[in-house]
Design a protein around this nucleic acid. Structure first.
Length: 926
RNA sequence: GGGGCGGUGGCGGAACAGGCAGACGCAGCAGACUUAAAAUCUGCCGAGGGAGACCUCUUGUGGGUUCAAGUCCCACCCGCCCUACCA
């Protein structure tokens, strides 16, 4: 034990001292060690916005604690850090303060490095990577070239938001308000078409939908699945205008081509000016202008009244040669598919509404009366559970207003009724047989082609069954039933009609044969579409990695040869907005020679989306100085894939899809291995201000980690962040809550360093004490595995209360005490690394606590010889008995029945049933 | 409109496989120490009833399953987040 006199807990002194010590000892350097299992723990890299936010601490310090825990469990752990340093905020700050984006960024990085170090995390700083360093973006550019060479990068005209006053393209977050104005000058933005670079993320859509090999939260998987969207299978078909221009459309229903009675283009579709006739010009232009002003949100509001205008132009329907008018309408999006649709009002809800409003022809081409099963509305027989029985067999469900619907193929009705018996309690069957069924559809011929159909159905229902009161209820029933929804709009069952030679083709084959025919006639081909769009890489910005491409008048697009990378970002630049990509205005930078022919050529002047930089930073961490490739293959083979990735849920749809795409694309090129870059993902929530609002400077509710560290020390801040909320949920900050953690830390300090009262503890006391220690160890170990950080800290607090008691009960100084303290400090080490190291050293244990083995649970110590048996009467707790843990069923039963309180509550009744849950309770039912 | 997440004391949150609801902490109250305050320590602390041992109620609401439900099933209400005419 220590000879040192007791001094109060002084985090400031301890923390700086140990941080210096660890640094100079290289305690957190991670090197390849083939004798140990590896563990790559990755936390999302910060953007160097200036100050480390409490949110960064919230994300990183529990991640750090878990990395430390893994290390103590024998893993060779890599826990690196870096900066996502390119991006728009640097340019904005630069414009506001007239300071170079580079200067601003690197000053921020320096400050944030200092702040990150104050956290006392086990970052291996030798592996730090900064995405705006030329040594880094050299390889970002290299990846771009590889993607280009592999056919994954292409150029396409694409609209950007443009401010006509500032003369500049705007990022999404720079467009404000419902009227979509420029954040700087307030001018309403317009759309402008620019030739830009895209990656073919859609090529990987199918694979990105599979999560079989990774352990990611359901929430993220759902978000990504919705974002990527389900596959729509169909065909792309070429229509021609009367002037011979080709308009390509995508359709999931090629079998309805004969019902295409008009076309609709997105207002910004490039062919619109050409198609529009002189007499329609004024209206078309007016409509276009109005459409560009609407936010996507307004424009895409599903319940919005359909608007649009006729262009005056006509196209030819390639399947029947009919002349059909071309309209423009904002319900067609330039950003999905081809920005043009064939409108089939008879079989598409939106087209139908549009046709009705503008008096366009409607031509049914699918007969949907065949193939339907009978649907029954079941009358209430709730107490019998007949509906539930059918539901269990998967043929019935309940509507929102409690009606039961069963949908059963005609020939199987009798069979299902018979089968239902198995699910119904004996004795009730006769009631079922006697209950009434009412059918809606029974060999009725019904037109399924339009909303009018619903009215027909309703009127028939009312004739048949007056208890069906609400029209919308019926429609809901039909719509919420997959089968009928399918029948209404996406049926494969309907037979083709009014479709020339295809009339009479049964629905199940219609799509296939029409696609074959289209391909044969070279009118179109089978195609698959996803909601996911290709990734737009180009940014008309300065502070990013230049796209390494050269435009040669003779040779066309030529990638910068790998050995000439990086294409350096020049420092002497006008970064203020001028209307062009800043690099375009540099006097010399853009002019170069063609790598192929040596003639004069020009560089691409756009830079890359910063998501490109952050898609592969986990690879650069492996070997940030390596100059033969983006990473050292030796390091890659040892460390990859990332075992645990932690960060905010807000990246579910962008970064986390891009990085998966990136990995898969690289795998196909031969750069990376394996299906996925990150095996396990966990997300933390958000720390809100004390007012439960999002922290923001304008609200004045920001909590500064620097101030907290000064007031409480890093260990307390770390522990409080782990303790105050469930990690994945987050919650509001509490300035009094952290005081409680400070108190705990001081008590830890005092409990371990201040002398106690030695004595001769009884064996039972020692046993109980050791049981608590090892039970806590088991719980905390489990909680580290499952990211339940709040109960790790509360478990430590509880055990400290035991330690405090032990100091006066005679346990102090015993072997059990020494063991407990040693285990306690090691459990504390990942949470509060500085105080743990200090206590460990003061007790004379060998440096460092962080390289110690995680303590092992002594299973024999956790065994309880006596348990508290809960006695219940009819499920209510009435008494508790301390009994031997191995009490037999009969003994427990006897003890319960003889218990006077139990007898009192039985009130003289016989015990009808006695339930015994071993080790827990006895429930007497009487 | 679609999808997701959540709803437990005054507050943040515990409850590991359906088995003692409210661990741990904050705030509050009372006491000890102190000339006093702070700090520290001890005790109390879901609601109602009772002098009391105790009793009743209680996990958003209403049903259901079960010997037993915060936990499982059904319906509904509220809050937050994401998404949105996907052809």
């Amino acid at each position: 034990m220590s000879e040192q006199p007791f001094t109060p807990y002084n985090p400031a002194e301890i923390e700086t001292r140990w941080q210096t010590q660890w640094e100079s000892d290289g305690l957190y350097q991670s090197n390849i060690d083939y004798n140990k299992p590896k563990y790559y723990a990755l936390t999302m890299l910060p953007y160097p916005s200036g100050d480390l936010h409490i949110g960064h601490w919230y994300a990183m310090s529990p991640s750090d604690a878990r990395a430390r825990y893994k290390r103590m469990n024998g893993y060779n752990v890599l826990f690196p850090i870096g900066f996502d340093a390119f991006g728009l905020p640097a340019e904005n700050a630069a414009i506001r303060r007239n300071i170079h984006p580079k200067e601003w960024t690197y000053a921020n990085i320096a400050n944030m490095r200092r702040q990150l170090r104050s956290m006392g995390a086990m970052f291996d700083w030798r592996r730090e990577a900064v995405s705006s360093d030329p040594e880094y973006y050299r390889w970002t550019q290299w990846f771009f070239s590889q993607f280009y060479k592999a056919g994954l990068a292409y150029r396409k005209l694409s609209p950007v938001d443009w401010c006509p006053t500032c003369n500049t393209t705007l990022a999404r977050e720079q467009v404000w308000g419902d009227d979509r104005h420029c954040e700087r000058c307030g001018t309403p933005v317009i759309k402008k078409n620019l030739s830009q670079w895209f990656f073919r993320t859609t090529k990987y859509a199918e694979e990105l939908l599979s999560y079989e090999t990774i352990d990611w939260p359901d929430r993220v998987r759902t978000l990504q699945t919705n974002w990527i969207g389900n596959r729509s299978e169909g065909a792309s078909v070429n229509f021609q205008t009367e002037h011979g221009d080709v308009i390509e459309v995508f359709t999931t229903r090629p079998d309805t081509l004969w019902g295409a009675t008009f076309m609709v283009l997105a207002p910004e579709h490039p062919l619109v000016p050409k198609i529009t006739t002189d007499d329609r010009k004024a209206e078309v232009v007016a409509y276009q202008e109005q459409a560009t002003r609407l936010s996507d949100l307004q424009r895409e509001a599903a319940d919005k009244e359909k608007t649009g205008t006729f262009t005056g132009g006509y196209a030819i329907n390639p399947v029947n040669g009919k002349r059909i008018p071309i309209w423009i309408a904002d319900y067609v999006m330039m950003s999905y598919g081809t920005g043009a649709i064939m409108a089939v009002p008879a079989h598409d809800e939106r087209d139908f509404a549009f046709a009705l409003k503008f008096g366009l022809p409607i031509q049914p081409v699918i007969d949907r009366t065949d193939g339907l099963t009978r649907t029954y509305i079941l009358k209430n027989s709730v107490k019998v559970g007949f509906e539930q029985a059918l539901a269990k067999m998967g043929v019935a469900y309940q509507t929102n207003d409690s009606a039961w619907i069963a949908s059963i193929p005609v020939e199987k009705v009798d069979e299902y009724i018979r089968l239902a018996q198995n699910f119904i309690q004996p004795g009730y069957w006769n009631e079922v047989v006697g209950s009434q069924w009412v059918f809606i559809f029974h060999d009725q011929t019904i037109e399924w082609d339009s909303v009018e159909t619903a009215e027909i159905i309703l009127s028939r229902c009312q004739q048949l069954e007056p208890t069906v009161r609400k029209f919308h209820t019926l429609m809901e029933m039909l719509w919420s039933n997959e089968y009928y929804r399918e029948a209404l709009y996406h049926s494969n069952y309907g037979t083709m009609i009014n479709s020339g030679e295809f009339s009479g083709t049964p629905g199940d084959r219609a799509k296939k044969v029409v696609i074959e025919w289209l391909e044969q006639k070279a009118i179109g081909q089978g195609a698959v579409n996803y909601r996911l769009r290709d990734w737009l890489i180009s940014r008309q910005r300065y502070w990013g990695a230049p796209i390494p491409m050269i435009y040669c008048p003779k040779c066309g697009i030529v990638p910068v040869p790998d050995e000439q990378l990086p294409v350096l970002l020049p420092d002497d630049i006008e970064w203020r907005p001028t209307g062009e990509s800043p690099l375009k205005l540099h006097p010399t930078w853009r002019f170069t020679t063609c790598p192929k022919c040596g003639e004069k050529a020009e560089r691409e002047t756009d830079t890359m989306d910063t998501f490109m930089c952050s898609s592969w930073y986990h690879l650069r961490y492996l070997s940030p100085q390596y100059d033969q490739g983006p990473f050292d293959p030796k390091e890659y083979d040892y460390w990859m894939p990332v075992d645990t990735y932690t960060g905010g849920i807000e990246h579910a749809n962008m970064h986390l899809i891009y990085t998966r795409f990136f990995h898969k694309a690289c795998r196909d090129i031969g750069i990376t291995k394996g299906l996925e870059p990150m095996i396990q993902l966990r997300n933390q929530g958000m720390v809100l201000g004390e007012d439960s609002e999002k922290m923001s400077k304008s609200r004045g509710n920001v909590v500064s980690p620097d101030d907290l560290v000064k007031a409480y020390g890093a260990d307390v801040v770390r522990a409080y962040l782990m303790f105050f909320a469930r990690w994945e949920l987050g919650g509001p900050w509490s300035s009094t809550g952290i005081d409680g953690v400070m108190r705990w830390m001081r008590r830890v300090w005092a409990a371990i360093l201040e002398p106690g009262i030695q004595g001769n503890p009884e064996a039972n006391l020692i046993k109980a004490f050791r049981r608590r220690v090892h039970q806590t160890l088991r719980n905390i170990t489990r909680d580290f595995e499952t990211f339940e950080f709040n109960t790790i800290v509360s478990g430590l607090m509880e055990l400290l209360n035991e330690l405090a008691k032990a100091k006066t009960s005679g346990l102090y100084g015993s072997p059990a005490w020494t063991e407990a303290v040693s285990i306690y400090i090691r459990m504390l080490a990942p949470v509060a690394p500085h105080i743990a190291e200090e206590l460990w050293a003061r007790l004379g244990y060998p440096y460092s606590v962080h390289t110690q083995e995680w303590p092992r649970v002594d299973e024999s110590a956790t065994v309880q010889e006596e348990i508290t048996l809960v006695l219940q009467v009819n499920g209510k707790v009435r008494d508790r008995l301390v009994v031997p843990a191995d009490i037999s069923h009969d003994e427990a039963r006897k003890a319960a029945l003889e218990n006077p309180i139990v007898q009192r509550f039985l009130e003289g009744r016989e015990a009808r049933q006695v339930i015994y849950v071993p080790g827990k309770l006895v429930n007497v039912v009487g």
